[in-house]
Amino acid sequence: MSVIVLAEHSQGTFKKKTFESVQYAADIAKAMGTTATAVALGTIADSELQLLGAYGATKVLHVADAKLDTLNARAYAKALATAAEKEGAKVIIALHDVTGKAVAPRLSARLKAGMVAGAVSLPDLGKGFAIKKAVFSGKAFAFVNITSDVKVVTLMPNTFPVKQGEGSTTIEQLSVTFEDKDFGVTVKEVSKVTGAVPLSEAELVVSGGRGMKGPENWGPLEDLAGSLGAALACSRPVADAHWRPHHEHVGQTGGTIRPNLYIAVGISGAIQHLAGVNASKTIVVINKDPEAPFFKAADYGVIGDAAEILPKLTEAVKKFKAAHN
């Protein structure tokens, strides 16, 4: 009755968030007195799969079907259901990202398993299987108890620090019988923003609002993001005015992020904006208006003109990086 975890990979390479989800599954398994089994789908080398042992997976089931190299939620859900059946698993873990959000609910319907989407805690087994998750777009948390026998959980990435251990893992091939309809979605074209850190998984984010006054003033923000290795974000008015692309919009109706550091420049801090970013571990607010409501939600505040402050902050970051490398 091991705990199953979908070990998501990007063209054969695991990212940190996958190690985090495997570690999460292993922690749950330990509390339940069992072991964690990772399931990897599509083309990936054994040497990469071996890495999962260090994060607590004692076994990896590999469905090495190249048709799984692109996401078909139906096929992924079927593969996970097959693995769960083989292992007698009662708990199945995925990430709360675009893949997990497409696959986990299907799996939940298929297995009649209750689900928590976007978990930010381990399950409280003393209360059944109660897990904390953000609700009302980050304005509050709910403790959701899964009451069904089989349980599906998607973990919010960047919730737990990831620690590499000593463990090793055994790899087994798993064969799954697919039908044509499992691959109903075909990929025509992929366009990736190259070089940039994807916002959803960025640990550091630099964000600009209406106070930046225009798209021509984004240079200093880009310089700061570059010096930190941070991703760029923006507030809704900025995206609506087409100063910045929509995928950079964070807030209640944009993306919800939880980076380690969120630097907000020229953003007043409307309740809708805070909803998307207030799970950030540390918030720095730079605003020329000392009355900006965002200061109340900030850890560090700087009052002043962005055009003057940003170059100084970038210089300070560069100096710090030079001294610490």
Partner: peptide, 11 residues
């Protein structure tokens, strides 16, 4: 239902 909200908490 397969799940229930037990309680809420403010950040």
């Amino acid at each position: 239902p397969l799940s229930e909200i037990v309680s809420y908490e403010m950040p």
